[in-house]
């Protein structure tokens, strides 16, 4: 991310970033977009191709499993997945809970851990960047913990807290705490000197500079941290539930695997994907609401 960003700053500032192919014909760094009419027509064509590609994908999938080229034990028919999804909404087989309960459990664990990770991690990162002694005291320790993947904490947390909700929450706490600290730390460190000077010449005190200049200018970075944290939370949640739990989406797919219900595994995996995407989308929405002046 850093490397890419630098390149951005280097490359020219005024050119509109238009996709390669649209560019190759006519508009090159021009402020006046030409051939709009044609690109619109092109757009609909590409959308049609996308739809066709998706339909083809599902048809091939369907045929492959219906004709038995790939055994239905390994690849259930798409329509069967929909049936299973509806069935799982109300039925507790094979893992003892309905889909709704699993989703609720997972979301609860992920969001609680994420919330604490962010609310503790961000202020810690900011104070590490702002107070030199704090930085020197905690940085080495933090550098030690930082490279350990959150999944590695799962067994320890299970030993401490058992297989209930606490062990997951604490793993997710670590998974989101670390990127929250790193990003808010480097966000504050990257405050432009000029901005600080402007504030100082207006007579701002050190704490005013922190709250009116440093934190707002670090906000995009902090949100990037939150995004990494949320992603990490969701991944380690699934891992933790796969390894040891009694509820949750990870547990659901693990149990389904053990009893050989591949349709339930498929549904679970897709639901995990969908909810991961929904969470990320929610965060992006918050970011658009709160970060003004655009990212980067």
């Amino acid at each position: 991310m850093i490397c890419g960003k630098r390149y951005w700053e280097y490359s020219s500032s005024t050119t509109t970033y238009i996709r390669m192919m649209a560019v190759s014909d006519s508009v090159i760094g021009s402020r006046l977009p030409s051939s709009q009419g044609r690109t619109l027509k092109e757009k609909t064509r590409y959308i049609l191709i996308s739809v066709a590609s998706l339909v083809l994908f599902i048809v091939i999938w369907d045929l492959a499993s219906r004709t038995g080229i790939i055994s239905a034990k390994k690849l259930p028919v798409p329509s069967k997945l929909f049936e299973t999804f509806l069935y799982k909404l109300t039925n507790k087989n094979p893992d003892g809970n309905t889909l709704g309960i699993h989703i609720w459990t997972s979301l609860q664990e992920a969001l609680i851990g994420f919330f604490f990770g962010i609310t503790i991690g961000v202020p810690l990162g900011i104070s590490m960047a702002w107070f030199r002694k704090f930085d020197k005291l905690f940085s080495p320790l933090f550098d030690l913990i930082k490279p350990i993947p959150p999944v590695g904490w799962v067994p320890i947390m299970i030993t401490f807290f058992g297989i209930g909700i606490m062990s997951k929450v604490s793993v997710i706490f670590i998974a989101s705490f670390i990127p929250a600290v790193i990003n808010s730390y480097s966000g504050i460190k990257q405050t432009r000197d000029v901005h600080t000077w402007v504030a100082q010449t207006f007579g701002a005190s050190r704490s005013q500079v922190l709250f009116t200049v440093a934190i707002p200018s670090a906000a995009p970075m902090i949100f990037t941290g939150a995004r990494v944290a949320l992603n990490g939370s969701w991944v380690s949640l699934v891992a933790a539930e796969l390894i040891a739990s009694t509820k949750g989406l990870g547990y659901m797919i693990q149990t389904a695997r053990l009893v050989g219900r591949i349709d339930v595994v498929f549904v679970g995996v897709l639901v995990i994907g969908v909810f991961g995407a929904i969470l990320m989308e929610g965060l992006s929405y918050l970011e658009r609401r709160f970060v003004k002046g655009g990212r980067r």
Binding site: S30, L32, P33, S34, S35, Q36, G37
Partner: peptide
């Protein structure tokens, strides 16, 4: 002539 959102611009 460029084609812009609201018509054409003769440059």
């Amino acid at each position: 002539t460029f084609i812009v959102e609201d018509g054409e611009a003769r440059v």
